[in-house]
Each structure stands twice: as C-alpha cells, then as structure tokens.
C-alpha cells in the first residue's frame, strides 16, 4: 500500500473547506487536552495530605514538671519538638550574641512575621523568656540534634549539637557553626496557661 493516490487515501482529495474543518479539529483537540488535564489533577492531588491529617493539628503539653536547665521532647505532626526550660546563664548567653555574628539572621518563628530578626526575644516564648519551643530537626539534612538530655554534648555554644555533620546551635537554637543553613524552626504554639502549651 505504498501508493499515495486518492483511491487508497481519501485524505488526499482536494478540500472544499479546509479552514472550517481545521477550526473544528482544533476545538476537538482543545477539549481533549482540557479533559485530559481535568482527569489528571485528582489523580495527583489525592496524594496530598488528606483532611484527617490536616486536622490533627495540635498537641497539648504540660510543662510544669520541667525543671530549670531541663528539656523534654514531644511529638507533633510526626516531628520531635524540643521544649527547653533555660537557665539564667543560657538566656544571657543568647541575648549577648550580636545579630551580625549569626549565620541565619531570621527568627524562623511561625508565630512572627517572616522577616523578624533572630533576636533572643523573637526566638523564646513571648513574655516567658526561659521557655524555648522548637522543631528539633537539623536544618541541614534532617537529623535530630543532641542536647536535650542533661549528659548530652551540647556543642561550643551550649545549645545543641548535630552528630550527623557537626552543625552547632546556641542556647536560642540558632545555627552558629556547621553546614546547616538555618536556625531550627519554631512551630506555631501558645501558652494555654502557665503550665500548658498547645502546639499547632
């Protein structure tokens, strides 16, 4: 069937009205493309977190048992949350740091605007500066830094030390030395009472 003559391929008959046919065919193609995209979207979106996951928003934590100098780790949305009850010395050390010495100058605090600077006041709980609440995940590649337990090596700055690649955080959880690019994130949280924090 190699002969391209009209007795075998009617598509070669000279056209009466090619432009009108083209319009209709372009329309058909457009509808097919829209229909295809519309069918594809739900197939992709269903992988996004579902409504029940999105609703499991908050965890409440009783902080009364945490002594000064102690820290606890709780889970929130599958992530570890560091809650440290800082000593006076730790607070002083954090406040003393000049902002231009910081690797990451931003507060990374979900309760504040994005551009808030990483002062100790913007990192610690407002009006309750002994309390530091952070997502305990190193911003380098996701390991959980050491420093929560009393006997842990806390790095040069007395905060946290990540054993994976040596990132070191200060007593306000800010990155000081090492490959991590950003300060540890602070989740949305609020004090329900003097002894209870609701995270998320």
């Amino acid at each position: 069937m190699a002969n391209p003559d009209i007795s075998t391929d009617p598509s070669l008959v000279p056209d009466d009205d090619p432009s009108r046919r083209d319009v209709i065919l372009i329309g058909a193609g457009a509808f097919a493309a829209i229909g295809g995209a519309a069918m594809l979207w739900p197939l992709l979106d269903q992988m996004n977190p579902d409504a029940s996951t999105l609703s499991l928003a908050s965890t409440e934590v009783d902080i009364a048992p945490i002594e000064e100098g102690q820290a606890i780790t709780v889970m929130w949305r599958g992530k570890p949350i560091f809650i440290r009850h800082r000593t006076a010395m730790e607070i002083e050390e954090a406040k003393d740091v000049k902002l231009d010495k910081l690797v990451d100058p931003l507060a990374r605090n979900a309760n504040l605007p994005e551009d808030a600077p990483a002062t100790d006041a913007n990192r610690a709980a407002s009006e309750r500066e002994p309390w530091l609440v952070m997502i305990g995940i190193c911003t380098h590649l996701g390991c959980i830094p050491k420093g929560q337990a009393v006997g842990d090596y806390k790095g040069e700055f007395g905060g946290w030390f990540c054993p994976c690649h040596g990132s070191q955080y200060d007593t306000a959880g800010r990155i000081r030395i090492g490959p991590a690019p950003q300060n540890m994130y602070i989740p949305p949280y609020a004090f329900e009472s003097e002894t209870k924090i609701k995270i998320g």
Partner: peptide
Amino acid sequence: EKIMRDVNWGWLL
C-alpha cells in the same frame, strides 16, 4: 470510608 470522606477527590476516584 476514609477515601470517600477525607482523601482529596477520594469520593470521585
């Protein structure tokens, strides 16, 4: 039922 209620477009799929 979770698919029908919570998964995005679950009811449709």
